[in-house]
């Protein structure tokens, strides 16, 4: 097997494009309440940045910058914030997940939930990719 040499074209393009992809991911994520998009789609777009970096710089190097424990922690953080928003309605004495319970437009709690979903999806997809890619290297 020929060793893989980083191509300056690829690495440079990825560097330039990554911030735009992240912005677009955020845009998609936050637009879920009124247009095409949402936490799942935005999260996957954000995760594609990690995949791109892994393609351009190699899996092991990318994983060194983004260790597994941090990925799992992010996934848990997303899940727990979703649960927190959902459970907060109970504290106010409303049904579970009631987004109208907080005296603000339901858009805001829903956006928080979308971000939570996005964080979870992005980290889970990234983690899965690393998990499968690492097994491939071994």
């Amino acid at each position: 097997m020929k060793p893989y040499h980083e191509s300056p074209v690829v690495t440079h393009t990825v560097r330039v494009v990554a911030p735009f992809i992240l912005t677009f991911g955020l845009f998609t994520l936050l637009h879920g309440t009124k247009s095409v998009g949402g936490g799942f789609q935005g999260g996957v777009i954000v995760a594609s940045v990690a995949v791109l970096f892994a393609f351009a710089f190699g899996v092991s190097q990318t994983e060194a910058t983004l260790p597994g424990v941090r990925i799992v922690a992010f996934a848990a953080l997303g899940l727990l914030s979703f649960a927190a928003v959902a459970g907060a309605a109970l504290v106010v004495g409303r049904p579970f997940l009631d987004t109208t319970a907080f005296g603000v437009s339901p858009v805001y709690p829903v956006e928080v939930i979308e971000v939570a979903i996005g964080v979870t999806v992005a980290s889970v997809v990234t983690g899965l990719f690393f998990e499968l890619a690492r097994a491939d290297d071994a």
Binding site: L128, E131, L132, A135, D136, A138
Partner: peptide, 10 residues
């Protein structure tokens, strides 16, 4: 399923 396949292959 893919994770299981990786394990089986390994």
């Amino acid at each position: 399923a893919l994770a299981l396949l990786v394990r089986i292959h390994a």
